[in-house]
């Protein structure tokens, strides 16, 4: 629970900690959807820039892409794929909630379906990807 149980002095300068609203699957999937969406946006921004270097020269492009071949970026790539996969799967869930007549009724099951599919896709990918990143 996000509540701080430490009492705050009545006239103390510290602002008392308000509690987090304890929403359920719907709220957390929305939070994750937002965060993954913003992360993907920033990736696309950088991606447009690095791809644009091919217009300068193919060597410049190779140099920029070569910079990405380090473990930090490797882990970042794992995060990127995770963000895209979650955003895509949860996007399908949101479309179903909006347009399928039984979508709102089954939204919680749909969320757990997203979680299961996400895990099924990400675990093999993470193993394969990380062996490449750290094995070579």
């Amino acid at each position: 629970m996000a509540t701080s149980l430490t009492p705050t002095a009545k006239d103390g300068p510290k602002r008392p900690v308000g509690t987090l609203y304890r929403g359920r699957e719907g709220m957390w999937s929305w939070v994750a959807h937002r965060i993954s969406g913003v992360a993907i946006f920033f990736f696309l921004f950088v991606h447009v820039l690095d791809t644009a270097t091919v217009r300068i020269s193919p060597e410049a492009y190779d140099a920029v892409i070569g910079q990405y071949k380090n473990p930090v970026m490797g882990v970042g790539e794992l995060g990127l794929v995770g963000a895209v996969v979650f955003h895509a799967l949860n996007g399908i869930r949101i479309i179903l909630v909006d347009f399928w007549s039984k979508g709102t009724q089954h939204q919680r099951k749909l969320f757990w379906g997203v979680v299961v599919l996400f895990t099924l896709m990400m675990v093999p990918f993470a193993i394969r990807h990380l062996t490449f990143v750290f094995g070579h």
């Binding site: 929403g23 719907g26 709220m27 929305w30 909630v97 909006d98 939204q107």
Partner: peptide, 26 residues
């Protein structure tokens, strides 16, 4: 509405609020 479903879970009368909003959207 971002279909967060907090409203449907908070409603003390058990109204399927997100569903009602989705119906208005449709």
């Amino acid at each position: 509405c971002r279909t967060i479903f907090n409203c449907s879970e908070a409603c003390p009368r058990g109204i399927q609020i997100t569903k009602a909003i989705a119906e208005v959207k449709q």
